[in-house]
Design a protein around this nucleic acid. Structure first.
Lengths: 335, 335
DNA sequence: CTGAAAGCGCTTACAG
DNA sequence: CTGAAAGCGCTTACAG
């Protein structure tokens, strides 16, 4: 493994000068800079990240904390963030919270992160209050992506607005019994679910539609979860004429559940989701589109800006858009 | 940031002893070990990864090289690998090759990786010969997951066999004009595509079925790609009565394409995929199931075994299984 | 069982 | 513009 000393020896200069030249710092003669660059190239020299980290305090690594890598939304966000980080020469350390519940606690250990990374990206979950102060103690740039947390930069959509768009669409079509399939209701970690539920409820209230707690169910943000929720909701005597699912994957599950029960979409049931997942068009699913990969990019850009001393932007709210396809229609009864 | 010196001072012992105690090395009195552990805990001491890396040469980090994080298969594999690595106290450095073509070249730079990680997991792609020698030069454990490469440990399925199962199933049903939708044919980086194509061709040959080059198309392993390929294949005058797609995502795209053309499945077209993707059951898609997350786990376990000096296993081939659903049936004509 | 000292490979003031 | 030296925070022989 060739070290900076090898390069220094090769060009008969000090390691200090080699270090400066290779990092593009000013204060090295053009002649020497060229000589050094060429020698480094020739010897295949690559600085040791550990040594750089120890000496400079910068690891050129960003932690990305994700609730579940294998979910579509997070895969896309990670992809977006990775593009930006890689282009800037930063490595991406992935912390997946799925599975082991203790993972979350461990990951947010301040010291652990601060000694290991230059910045942190938190995807799709709202840090708890203690976690927020931990993140603040980090003293490193932090970005929340796909969720919001007061005091911390975040890039996300307006989840309540997205839910309102979806619900309004159903109400406008004439639906009055509208089911909701969301995340688990007891964990408020994920901001999106609760904001989406809030948007749904708000529209019902504002439009003077009676709200039934029983029509709210949990789909766990998975296709299977959505299907199971649909089976529960649609076998009720007073089954809803429409279901708003807080994600397209759950909405797809709802479609499946409806089909299993022999219910036609949209004749017997209207379904609307959120995301504009790759498969939404496939299913002719009406949905509220959000820019997912872009959120990952913005989050990464934000921490990089802070890292390089550029004035970072304020929290950003990206636009959403209702995309009407054929999974929604007026309910039969009210024609 | 509390350092090992702080802990040493706190307990009035040397940093050497603290280091040994905290790493669980033998040769520390029980009394001191307890005292040290408690002090470290109390002070919230976490060793600096950079310092540990520099001093010991071990980074406790594993590189995971993935062609495309946002694809289902890779998300699952990463998830599996992450579970195992995390449990062993290793961090996961994600290298995504999607997008920028230069990424691949850069990532395989030996020095870069060897100074940064203790081991490497290569997912879903077969390293080129130069890349293989680079990986060998690494002098670190390497595992190929979801592909094979001579000389390197790999965990995968038998792709040719999977393709044979799928194709035989169609032939057994009576199909003679069987289309194939795979990855791009010119890049042989991904072993799976070519092995799957080979399996498809072999079965046709063995069963004395005329093989039309024109019935082989490219679906790019995406839903959209599968759909586009289906539109091309199914608008031919001599359209196939069945299509074998080399992944479920492409198969789902094929279903979509068929629907757009007004073709019924399985009456007008039989479709079979590979994976048993979460959505395969949803689509009643006949497919060849493979254990995906498990491949990620095995790969991670393998490099960990090598790292800890345990005798590592030989390359592993995990079983596949044909799952017949209702997307396949005998062709109408010969019905 | 414990410690002093060297060393891992860089970067960073400080001089010049 | 360049270099000598200290230091980053650990681990690792080497002594004892």
């Amino acid at each position: 493994m060739t070290s900076i000393k090898d390069v220094a020896r090769e060009v008969a200069l000090s390691t200090a000068t080699v270090s400066r030249a290779l990092r593009g710092l000013r204060g090295v003669s053009d002649e020497n800079r060229t000589k050094i660059t060429e020698a480094a190239q020739r010897l295949g020299y690559v600085p040791s990240p550990s040594a750089v980290g120890l000496a400079s305090g910068h690891t050129h690594t960003v932690a990305v904390i994700v609730p579940h890598v294998a979910r579509w939304f997070f895969g896309e966000v990670v992809q977006g963030a990775e593009e930006v980080l890689r282009a800037a020469g930063y490595d991406l350390l992935l912390y997946n919270l799925a599975g082991e519940p203790a993972a979350r606690h461990r990951v947010f250990q301040t010291d652990l992160l601060s000694k290991r990374v230059d910045a942190v990206l938190v995807l799709g979950l709202r840090p708890s209050l203690p976690e927020q102060s931990r993140l603040a103690e980090l003293g490193r740039p932090v970005a929340i992506v796909g969720a919001v947390a007061n005091g911390l930069y975040s890039v996300s959509i307006d989840d309540e607005r997205a839910a309102r768009l979806a619900t309004c669409h159903l109400v406008d079509l004439g639906h009055r019994r509208i089911g909701y399939v969301g995340g688990s209701l007891d964990t408020l970690d994920f901001i999106a679910p609760s904001a989406r539920l809030a948007g749904y409820r708000a529209v019902l209230r504002e439009r003077g539609i009676r709200h039934y707690r029983d029509l709210e169910d949990v789909g766990d943000f998975s296709v299977t979860g959505g299907r199971d929720a649909a089976l529960r909701l649609l076998t009720r005597s007073d089954r809803p004429t429409a279901i708003f699912a807080a994600s397209d994957e759950m909405a797809i599950g709802v479609l499946r559940g409806a089909r299993e029960l022999g219910l036609g979409v949209p004749e017997d049931l209207s379904v609307v989701g959120i995301d504009d997942h790759e498969l939404a068009a496939f299913f002719d699913l009406t949905t509220v589109a959000q820019p997912v990969r872009e959120q990952g990019r913005r989050g990464a850009e934000r921490v990089l800006a802070e890292l390089t001393g550029v004035r970072p932007p304020d929290s950003e709210v990206l636009p959403v858009e209702l995309i009407v396809r054929t999974s929604t229609a007026s309910p039969r009864d009210e024609g």
